[in-house]
Structure formats: structure tokens, C-alpha cells
Design a protein around this nucleic acid. Structure first.
Length: 135
DNA sequence: GCCAACGTTGGC
DNA sequence: GCCAACGTTGGC
């Protein structure tokens, strides 16, 4: 079981849109690092969904419901896409500004490489964020 | 709206 | 293969 974090701008496609559609196709990723992460995902891996720009917070947990396949929005055949199924919304969103103050989370890619839109998360980090969302 | 950080492109 | 120029992302 692996853990990930995926970013999305909520005014383009956010948590609520995922829930409405029951399953989200994560396409349009045009960054090699992010693509490599998409391709490393396996069924049922857990994914934190993060809202960038508006909110700047982790809002929910999803799981991988379809492993990588060619990105339908791409015609070069270079890019990959996956599908996520929303599992549950966090009781309380966990904002980036707060994550930055938590010593256990200071090494998260989210904090150190703000521009990577699909990134790995350690199990401890994942658990910590879930715990923080329930305080 | 600005700007820093980073990734990608293209000239050499 | 290096590096400058440029474009994009995303926090503030």
C-alpha cells in the first residue's frame, strides 16, 4: 500500500466534483515527475486530495480505482492518467499553513516542492494529516 | 497581481 | 551536453 497526494484547483475540478461524478479521471498532467508518480500508483493506494490556490488545504481521501492508462486528453501518447474514487471527506480540512508548523510534516514534498502536482506521501505523514483533521 | 521556484525548450 | 531564455505553477 502506497500513499500519495494529488493537487487540483477547486474552481477547475475539486473534491465536490469528484464526489458528484463518483470517480475522477486524473488527466492533463504534463510534468514528468508527476507522471512517474501516476505510473507508480497501484489499485487501492490512498490519495490525499489537495486544493491549490483556493483553500490551500487537504480536503479528502481518495483511492486509486484504475491504474495508469494513456491520457485521453493527450495525442502524443506520452502522458498517463489514472482514476480516483473519493472515499471520504476530512472532518476538517488541513491547511498548508498549518502543515508547515508541524515538525513531523516539514519534509513533505508539498512543503518543499510546491509545484509538483502528484507526489508521494509517507505512511506516517498520511496518518498524521488524517489525525490532525479529526482534532 | 506579483514573484520565486522549477521545468522545458532550443541555440550553440 | 550545457545553459540561457522562457513559460507555468502556486504561495503570498
Amino acid at each position: 500500500m502506497k500513499y500519495w497526494l494529488a493537487k487540483s484547483e477547486p474552481d477547475v475540478y475539486g473534491w465536490d466534483d469528484m464526489v458528484k461524478e463518483k470517480e475522477a479521471t486524473w488527466d492533463g498532467v504534463r510534468n514528468y515527475g508527476a507522471r512517474n508518480n501516476l505510473m507508480a500508483m497501484e489499485m487501492h493506494d490512498k490519495v490525499l486530495i489537495y486544493h491549490s490556490n483556493i483553500g490551500k488545504e487537504v480536503v479528502g481521501i481518495a483511492e486509486v480505482s484504475k491504474e495508469h492508462f494513456p491520457d485521453p486528453s493527450d495525442h502524443t501518447g506520452k502522458w498517463a492518467s489514472v482514476k480516483f474514487k473519493p472515499l471520504r471527506k476530512l472532518k476538517k480540512p488541513v491547511p498548508l499553513s498549518f502543515i508547515k508548523t508541524v515538525p513531523e510534516l516539514k519534509d513533505m514534498v508539498l512543503v518543499n516542492n510546491t509545484r509538483l502536482s502528484v507526489q508521494p506521501v509517507l505512511e506516517e505523514e498520511f496518518e498524521k494529516i488524517v489525525a490532525l483533521s479529526e482534532e
